[in-house]
Design a binder for these strands. Structure first.
Length: 544
RNA sequence: GCGCCUGUAGCUCAGCCCGGAUAGAGCAACGGACUUCUAAUCCGUAGGCCGCAGGUUCGAAUCCUGCCGGGCGCACCA
């Protein structure tokens, strides 16, 4: 449709010998049904540039429009071109959907661009905090969307397994281990005091028995550290899997240190004259690329900063051949965007190669009250707590349904409610109804392929059809904007259209031909509903 | 002080990127629909100085400027 409109536009410009820059042609779904199924303001945009009458231009455009999937083209209002879809094209869509099955919706929009999505990447020093869950879900769903839209997406978790925090994890575990043997230990102020450390210490004892008591402290702490790190990674991995999130790669920061990659990366930038020395430290000249101030990469004590490791890490990502990098960060890290983009440019790539999705903070509400998520030891709410309380489906849907730009008030009561107030159940219920109809249909389902979709004529049927036909476009749009909430809304809208159809039109009747046609529509609805729920990572139950 | 996000119906939010037709949805409120393939549904009613003030435009929730409110950041920390 966009293609045909663009072609018509080109013809007009050729006819008049005009050469002007115009934005890509856009179509939208009008609010008002009488305005057709799709509408474009193309003529008005052109008129502005050419200084002509928009309605006349619209007429000229429609005259040159060559499009078989619409049955009606109208010029309306100040110069809108309203398009009404051809019924036979629409009903043919049902067959396309059934033929494509779980691949329906897939396009080559992304042209196989190699994209790496890095998300979560929290310190492996404890269970995942609930504050990480929005970013986790958003990262996963955006990856799903882009995958369906034809990008070659890899999910990656960056493990901060080097530095003080990990040492502290090892020490904390070691101290708890000593406690298990009756030693009185005062846990230092900054140590990890959560109960999970005691659990890890018990595991440590199960593995080593008394052995660590007899080793010198440094060696024992190191063994404790490695053990605890492994335990934490397994824990985090399991927690994420419970959320339906599986990474393609877990990248260890430590390998960068061990293989001298950090020094090498700093040397590279030094060679390009982007590094200078001041007050015994080495600084990266990030101001040269739009940052507010230069940043230290090697501290005066000789140790690299976190940024130095990030430089090496992103250099590594780029060297692995990704065309585009996306990092999902919490709002508290937005101040780091410009320096990382500076890094990318300093490494010789376009700043836009790196894209940061900032996910705004979430406030958990219980009975209208804020749930405190204090960092004070032992009091934090973990991602597992959330999962246990409201379940994977509700958690994933709720985190997907809002624009990442918006702060989000997460109403725990609402997410738990198994009722009409809860959008998750509304959508899942549509699927359960479909399965119920299919069961009721029994044997005649075998003949579904013979169903004649052109018998679908009522408003409810056509509305549902249009929505089903729109799915690939919705995915493309969501992929372009990296916007999971668009898919969540679409799922809700689709479920709604199905419920309306269900209430108004009986599927299984004495009229066998009509029953088959409607069963076909039901089947297509099932396919799309499943596909869209799959993208969101929400289950599609057979009954509720 | 500076930077980023945000302010739209009683509540939670779409729409803003890319200006257009009467500003939408869900929930809550009110009224109605079960002898039916699941009423976890559907139908209807009501509800709006789009934070405020200017500007650009034939046209502004949308773009620009200023102001006000909320959130998050402004390390030789990770």
């Amino acid at each position: 449709m966009v293609g045909a409109l663009t072609e018509a536009r080109e013809k007009i410009l050729q006819d008049r010998g005009e050469e002007i820059e115009l934005p890509p042609v856009e179509v939208e779904v009008p609010r008002e049904k009488s305005h057709g199924d799709y509408a474009s303001n193309l003529a008005m945009v052109m008129a502005g540039k050419l200084g002509e009458n928009p309605r006349q231009l619209a007429e000229a455009l429609t005259d040159r429009l060559n499009l078989d999937l619409v049955e009606k083209v109208e010029v309306a209002g100040p110069g809108f071109i309203n398009l009404t879809l051809n019924k036979s094209w629409l009903t043919a869509a049902v067959d396309k959907i059934l033929a494509a099955g779980e691949d329906y919706g897939r396009t080559d929009y992304g042209q196989g661009e190699k994209v790496q999505l890095e998300f979560v990447s929290t310190n492996p020093t404890g269970p995942l905090h609930v504050g990480h869950s929005r970013g986790a879900v958003v990262g996963d769903v955006v990856a799903n969307i882009m995958d369906r839209a034809g990008y070659d997406v890899k999910r990656e978790y960056y493990i901060n397994d080097a530095g003080n925090q990990i040492d502290l994890l090892g020490k904390s575990t070691y101290w708890r281990y000593l406690e298990l043997f009756g030693q009185e230990i005062e846990m230092p102020e900054n140590s990890y005091k959560g109960d999970y450390i005691i659990e890890v210490a018990r595991e440590l004892r199960a593995k080593y028995g008394e052995e660590l008591l007899h080793k010198d402290e440094g060696e024992a702490m190191e063994l404790a550290r490695e053990f605890a790190l492994n335990e934490m990674l397994e824990l985090i991995q399991a927690e994420l899997e419970n959320f339906g999130i599986v990474f393609d790669n877990w990248f260890s920061e430590r390998t960068l240190h061990d293989e001298g990659k950090i020094t090498a990366a700093v040397e590279e930038l030094k060679g390009k004259d982007y590094i200078y020395e001041k007050e015994d430290a080495l600084w990266f000249k990030s101001t040269a690329f739009g940052d507010d101030k230069d940043r230290v990469v090697i501290k005066s004590d000789g140790n690299p900063t976190y940024l130095a490791a990030d430089i090496a890490y992103h250099k590594n990502k780029l060297e692995r051949g990704f065309d585009h990098l996306i990092n999902v960060w919490g709002a508290d890290h937005h101040g780091y965007i410009q320096r990382m983009k500076a890094v990318i440019e300093a490494l010789g790539y376009d700043q836009d190669t790196l894209e940061i999705i900032i996910v705004q903070i979430v406030t958990l509400l219980r009975e209208g009250e804020k749930v405190p998520m204090s960092k004070r030891s032992g009091e934090f709410v973990t991602m597992s707590d959330l999962l246990e309380e409201i379940g994977k489906d509700a958690a994933r849907y709720f985190y997907s349904m809002r624009s990442t730009d918006s702060h989000f008030d997460f109403d725990l009561e609402l997410a738990k409610k198994q009722s009409t107030e809860n959008p998750v159940y509304y959508i899942q219920y549509a699927h359960a109804r479909i399965m119920s109809i299919k069961e009721k249909a029994g044997e005649i389902q075998a003949d579904i392929a013979e169903g004649d979709a052109s018998l679908l004529k009522t408003e409810e049927e056509i509305d549902l059809l249009k929505l089903l036909a729109r799915y690939p476009e919705e995915l493309k749009m969501a992929a372009r904007r990296r916007a999971c909430h668009l898919i969540a809304s679409y799922a809700h809208e689709l479920a709604g259209a199905f419920h309306v159809f269900y209430n108004k039109r009986r599927v299984i009747t004495d009229d066998e031909e009509l029953s088959l046609a409607r069963l076909k529509l039901v089947e297509a609805s099932k396919v799309v509903l499943r596909n869209v729920l799959e993208v969101l990572g929400v289950s599609a139950p057979d009954q509720m």
